[in-house]
Design a protein around this nucleic acid. Structure first.
Length: 464
DNA sequence: CCTGACTCGC
DNA sequence: ATGCGAGTCAGGA
């Protein structure tokens, strides 16, 4: 009933039977001697109603073919858990604490006073008032001290550089070393909880602890992944989709140029730069690729010229030019973006390739900001949601094949476009091939899905 | 106990 | 004024 309620309205935050009965006007008729009989009648009634609603909205198979089988897979993944090297986490935590304390002292020296560096309020006063560092006043309570503001100042002001380092180290220590250590069970493994009814696009989320946001971007953060390991005699296989959201976009927008770009085998951001700037692939400079990449990401999120400009450090005008050229190059995408909003305004919802819905009451708001948000969501939700559907289908298929062919191998984690399996060492190559095959074949799109799989004794190594 | 600010992931 | 999440800390109710 909970999963059916989620599909009927993924924007709700309460799928209790009480709440579902109220929302779908289900009442239990007649007299009941005991509470449990009444509750059973209510549950039966609300299931019937939800099933009808799903049939009417074309989501019956999303429930029966995706979410219900997936719930078994997720339960198994939670129960299995991910083995960690707790000793390693502990000693890294101690090292980080020492280093952050050193940096904290240096910050106090430059500031000429001791204060709580973790307090944005106190930090803002020190940096922008006491030390007169130029600021952009931003938040409603005072100065913004966020990384994108401080980044521009770090080379001119050593204290700013130290604050950023301090933040990085304390984040790793408190959220990851301490946070993960406190979540290690008696079996030495971390058992996350997957929430299947939280994300409005159809993604799953991970909590207590969140294993979907373990650091990977910085060298400092990457070290943590060495502590996520396979048990003795076993190996980790890690497989991830390459550019799944852009491939989904190319396919559902039926954009001939973007499809051709993917089929050419050239890196998609380089191919995009080549198209947008009208130059051969081998003339694309790193800066061009990086801007094309930012536009590719921005398009998926429904970005505007203002934010894109800020993101890549160019004027709003120049950013608008990039977007215009992009939409001229990929005119199927431009057409799709217009159509999806038109459809959403007419019907009040958008759908994924597999029929998952998201309702968008924001589109009829009189508030321009709310309405614009609704339009960005209308552009993004079918893309993000279709990618979520695809990996869910892959997970069910991988699970079933592992169960029958490699029963000692277990799916242990999903991170939106990535799956991790713990398998006997001898099976690692076969399991990598199995992952690639099932992930690639989870959906038949107009662009082939590309998957890379690697294996290793720890997560960092298995990333390849 | 809640909200805002911040930072981590895709 | 770029989509979807979660955890930690500060600060105030």
């Amino acid at each position: 009933a909970k999963l059916a309620g989620y599909l009927c309205n993924p924007s709700s935050n309460d799928y209790s039977v009480e709440r579902l009965c109220a929302e779908y006007a289900v009442e239990a008729g007649g007299e009941f001697e005991e509470e449990i009989y009444k509750n059973t009648a209510l549950l039966t009634g609300v299931c019937d109603t939800l099933e009808n609603r799903l049939g009417e909205s074309g989501q019956a198979r999303v429930l029966t073919d995706i979410e219900l089988p997936l719930s078994t897979v997720l339960a198994d993944m939670e129960k299995t858990g991910f083995l960690v090297n707790a000793e390693g986490l502990k000693s890294l935590g101690e090292e980080l604490l020492e280093r952050s304390n050193e940096i904290k002292k240096e910050i106090y020296e430059i500031a000429g006073t001791e204060f709580n560096v973790n307090s944005p309020k106190q930090l803002g006063e020190i940096l922008f008032e006491k030390l007169n560092i130029p600021s952009g006043k931003k938040t409603k309570n005072g100065y913004s001290t966020s990384a994108d503001i401080l980044d521009g100042l770090r080379y001119d002001y050593p204290i700013v550089d130290k604050v950023l380092s301090y933040r990085q180290l304390t984040k790793l220590k408190s959220t990851y070393c301490d946070g993960l250590l406190s979540a290690v069970s008696e079996d030495g493994r971390i058992h996350t909880t997957f929430n299947q009814t939280e994300a409005r696009t159809g993604r799953i989320s991970s909590l207590e602890p969140n294993l979907q946001n373990i650091p990977v971007r910085t060298d400092e953060g990457k070290k943590l992944r060495e502590f996520f390991i396979a048990r003795d005699g076993y190996t980790l296989c890690d497989a991830d989709y390459s550019q799944i959201e852009l491939r989904v976009l190319a396919s559902i927008a039926d954009d001939k140029n973007m499809i051709a770009a993917f089929n050419s085998g050239v890196d998609i951001h380089t191919a995009t730069a080549s198209e947008v700037f009208g130059i051969p692939v081998d003339m694309v400079l790193p800066i061009m690729r990086s801007r094309a990449k930012a536009v590719n990401f921005g398009i998926v999120y429904g970005i505007g010229a203002f934010s894109l400009g800020k993101d890549i450090g160019v004027s709003r005008k120049e950013a608008q030019m990039y977007i215009d050229n992009y939409l001229k190059t990929y005119n199927g995408v431009a057409r799709y973006m217009d159509n999806v909003i038109m459809h959403a305004k007419e019907n009040g919802f958008v759908t994924t390739y597999f029929g998952r819905r998201r309702y968008l009451p924001e589109l009829s708001s009189s508030n321009h900001m709310v309405r614009s948000f609704g339009e960005r969501v209308a552009r993004n939700a079918p893309i993000q949601g279709t990618a979520a559907d695809i990996i869910k289908i892959a997970m069910v298929n991988v699970y079933n094949r592992l169960k029958s062919d490699y029963p000692d191998s277990k799916l242990i984690l999903q991170i939106h476009d990535e799956l991790i399996v713990e398998c006997p060492e001898k099976d690692k190559d076969a399991v990598c091939r199995l992952l690639e095959e099932e992930m690639q074949n989870a959906a038949d799109l107009k662009v082939t899905l590309s998957v890379d799989a690697h294996s290793g004794k720890n997560w960092l190594e298995a990333k390849g």
